[in-house]
Design a protein around this nucleic acid. Structure first.
Lengths: 228, 228
DNA sequence: TTTCGTTATATGGTATGCCAGAAACCACCA
DNA sequence: TGGTGGTTTCTGGCATACCATATAACGAAA
């Protein structure tokens, strides 16, 4: 007998103003080109509360969370400032990223299924052609997704969480990072090697390749990106 | 000519109630044995605001930060609950720790001075004797400081920051972790090997040793610590 | 006695108002 | 004209009052 079951779907949980304000602020800050000279880094509580249409209380709680996350700095009776990361801090973030993603690669060789690993090809092989420079935008996206995929394959939620947090900060820099032709091409070669190491379940090698790959980025940023 | 200079010292910066409440709550939560069965995990805003002698506003901002940090969960109109980490989450934290500290060890071989590395002996050689079991408390402290020292030697502030955050969560577990005699003894052997790798500036080896050392802890917790 | 509906209460969510301190502004004096 | 000191204003910190909802308590009906 077939029961006519009620289609139950979770009640649309309208999030609190605090959390919605938090998200909105995060997006807004992410969209700002805070590294452009003369960018306005000051936030005004009252102005924001008007813009968002909420009172200062939930707004301030959202700001407290963003402060904890390191996105803004609250100076008592001075103002609220978007934090501009120094180059040294960016380099540290990339270093931490290297540590975490390489560990993720090692874990992936232990826990990911063959099918899951095989799916990585889709994020790399597309750009096999020599016409990379024409698809830099797409490549940049695929590049990010490739690294996120490895982290996902590790099954370690915490690594995903932390690297996500780092990404929030590094995103601003990305706008100013120039991928010259050779870097993109060599990056693809690296990615293929990484996939191969994962497929052969060579944890040691996968870890090393990912680490070295990311440290190349570190070196590149250190050498060519000007911030301060 | 010697000037009679005014001895200027920075004015005692009285922190905001928010940040002081944040610190106090963090300490209070850390001191709680939240993993004991029947432990009270619910926090009451109004009661806390009375206990701390502050209004709910700064208290709530502090709680918002703790929520961001993952120490508490705020359920709308239900209550505020101290987050009990699952065993799986603890294991992930140790994994992340392994990734970060091993990277720190690698960095330390590149940037730390000989003198700084030599100072590590002080945290290990003391326990050379076979009477470790009589000084478990001290050893536990020295053990923690040893790992913190390696991280400090890397010069990477971000690694220190993240591992500190992890430590806040793992501290609660530590109370329930039994260090049996052999683990302590073998731990000291590991530490000596690590120091030697650092002294010989063998980054590859230092990284591997630290990683394996921490993954041993992971394995131990996975096998012997019961939480859920 | 049990169950269901109603009411009361407890608890977090939000708005608002006032306060204190910092910075900007301005007037006055040298 | 330049600098100093007072005053105003702007801004975040904090307290409090009220609101909405989840849960508990209670009572009536079956």
């Amino acid at each position: 007998m077939i029961k006519a079951q009620l289609e139950i779907q979770p009640i649309e949980e309208v999030q609190s103003l605090k959390s919605r304000t938090y998200e909105a602020l995060k997006v807004a800050i992410g969209a700002m080109k805070i590294y452009d000279a003369g960018a306005e880094l000051r936030l005004d509580e009252r102005a924001l509360s008007l813009q968002f249409g909420v009172s200062r209380t939930p707004l301030r709680e959202a700001l407290a969370q963003l402060e904890q996350e390191g996105l803004v700095r609250i100076a008592p009776r001075r103002g609220i400032f978007i934090v501009r990361k120094t180059k040294a801090e960016i380099l540290e973030m990339i270093t931490v990223w290297a540590a975490l993603e390489s560990m993720a690669a090692r874990l992936a060789t232990e826990v990911a299924s063959d099918a899951e690993i095989a799916r990585l090809h889709g994020l790399v092989d597309t750009f096999d052609s020599d016409a990379i420079e024409e698809h830099m935008g797409e490549y940049s996206d695929a590049n990010i997704r490739f690294h996120a995929a490895i982290i996902a394959l590790s099954g370690c939620k915490l690594i995903a969480e932390i690297t996500n947090g780092l990404f929030t900060h590094v995103r601003g820099i990305r706008q100013r990072t120039i991928f010259e032709r050779d870097r993109a091409r060599r990056s693809i070669v690296d990615h293929k090697e990484i996939i191969e190491a994962l497929e052969t379940r060579n944890g040691e090698r996968a870890e090393r390749l990912v680490r070295e790959h990311t440290l190349k980025l570190r070196q590149h940023v250190e050498q060519f990106v000007q911030l301060d």
